[in-house]
């Protein structure tokens, strides 16, 4: 029975570490920060001279090409960065994300930065 409690405490301790980590990083994964930011965004991507369609963008990032995300905008930037690093060998892409946080003015984020 003791090992069960020890394992449970380990799981809880890992989450406590993630909450502390969340104060020092932007991505906010696993730190219990649900629904803390409204990110309205639109993704545009060119590979060579070709622009990708909304369907192609959805398949590439498993996210709609435009919409509203209820999590940190950095979750989206993280997904795009990692996906592009993975797909880089098939051609260098240029990504532009036009986004607005919680109704503020529009900003731009680019890959590569």
């Amino acid at each position: 029975m003791q090992w069960r409690i020890a394992l449970g405490l380990l799981i809880l301790a890992a989450q406590a570490v993630a909450i502390v980590r969340g104060r020092f990083v932007n991505d906010r994964y696993f730190c219990w920060a649900p629904f803390d930011q409204q990110t309205k965004y639109e993704i545009r991507i060119d590979i060579g001279r070709e622009g990708l369609t909304h369907d192609q963008i959805r398949k590439r990032y498993r996210r709609p090409a435009e919409g509203v995300d209820n999590r940190s905008a950095h979750n989206l930037f993280d997904i795009i960065t990692r996906a592009e690093q993975k797909f880089e060998k098939w051609g260098r892409s240029r990504v532009l994300v036009i986004y607005s946080l919680n109704g503020h003015e529009r900003q731009e984020w680019r890959y590569p930065q």
């Binding site: 809880l12 989450q15 406590a16 909450i19 969340g22 104060r23 906010r28 730190c31 219990w32 920060a33 649900p34 803390d36 930011q37 409204q38 946080l101 919680n102 109704g103 503020h104």
Partner: peptide, 26 residues
Amino acid sequence: ALVYFGAGLNKALDADWQSGQFFHHW
């Protein structure tokens, strides 16, 4: 306790939650 603490802490330290902008926009 961890879930509510993490959620409350993150909001309390966010400028848009402090100003009310998050809820107003949402």
